[in-house]
Design a protein around this nucleic acid. Structure first.
Length: 272
DNA sequence: TTACAGGTCTTGT
DNA sequence: ACAAGACCTGTA
């Protein structure tokens, strides 16, 4: 068990931000966070409003923090600087969105899990997405003692059936993606080496991955935080508040993080 | 009953 | 290149 003071981190916000689908709330202020074959139990002991974060207890060693969880929580990115940029912009809408979601960080998640999860996410709602992913992991049954790991391409048999997981028509997209993952074993090592544009083009070549999902994978799976996914909600916001154009130049290189504040605020506040 | 979910694919022009 | 329509399915 270690303790850390972390800015711009509020667990409920991350869990409800729509970037991850498997954070499990164990009790108030405590979550189980699965990544690959490991899981972290993290508890918020005390909130510090001035840094939009607080003090946290993490059930891991210092070595695990250094080698895995520090990176997962994206500790090297200065979210306060992005927040200051928004707060000093005079942009009323974005200011409100940031105040609502200032505890969100863009997690450095497992690439394969992000690819599969966001293929499932298309034309779907978050509740059903979570249900499908959990059903899938349960069916694959990679028990790590307390949770099921997310299946990599070679973790499931070639004749694995994606039926009856609540996937609807997306089942064949997953089937195809897993087949590609097995056949092109270099895929997962190749993607992270590419820049945003090139990775995006590569992802668009797969069935079931269109512009929006490709951007989500770039943003959440490859940490290209300049990627700006436009879904039905963001489109509404852009149409309603930025008909003259969104100030992309002001947030060059970090537009995806700003997008996440807007998305969260709309979910939370029911705002456009 | 219809509309909507963190859209994409296919087909017709 | 661009605009329809179709598409699984749970929830309101």
């Amino acid at each position: 068990m270690i303790k850390k003071t972390i800015g711009n981190l509020q667990l409920d916000m991350v869990a409800d931000s729509g970037q991850c689908f498997r954070w499990k709330k164990l009790e108030e202020d405590t979550y189980m966070v699965p990544v690959g074959r490991k899981a972290l139990i993290i508890t918020c002991d005390c909130v510090h409003k001035d840094i939009a974060g607080g003090e946290f207890s993490l059930e891991c060693s210092d070595d695990e923090w250094d080698s895995l969880w520090s990176s997962y929580l994206d500790m090297e990115t200065d979210y306060q600087a992005i927040g200051d940029k928004i707060l000093s912009s005079g942009d009323e809408y974005l200011t409100e969105a940031y105040r609502a979601g200032s505890g969100i960080r863009i997690l450095r998640q497992d690439l394969w899990e992000v690819i599969i999860s966001f293929i499932i996410s298309q034309n779907n709602n978050i509740k059903r997405i979570k249900g499908s992913i959990e059903a899938f992991c349960d069916k694959a049954g990679l028990d790590q003692g307390g949770f099921n790991a997310f299946p990599y391409p070679n973790d499931i048999p070639e004749d694995f059936s994606f039926a009856n997981l609540g996937l609807g028509y997306r089942d064949e997209y997953l089937e195809n993606m897993y087949r590609c993952g097995r056949k092109e074993s270099e895929l997962l090592s190749l993607l992270p080496e590419k820049g945003y544009e090139e990775a995006r083009e590569m992802l668009l070549g797969f069935k079931g991955i269109g512009p929006k999902v490709a951007n989500c994978i770039c943003l959440f799976g490859l940490h290209h935080v300049e990627a700006f996914p436009v879904d039905t909600h963001i489109k509404q916001i852009l149409d309603g508040h930025y008909s003259q154009g969104f100030p992309f130049d002001r947030y060059e290189g970090v537009a995806g993080i700003v997008q996440q504040y807007m998305f969260y605020a709309k979910q939370k506040l029911g705002k456009q």
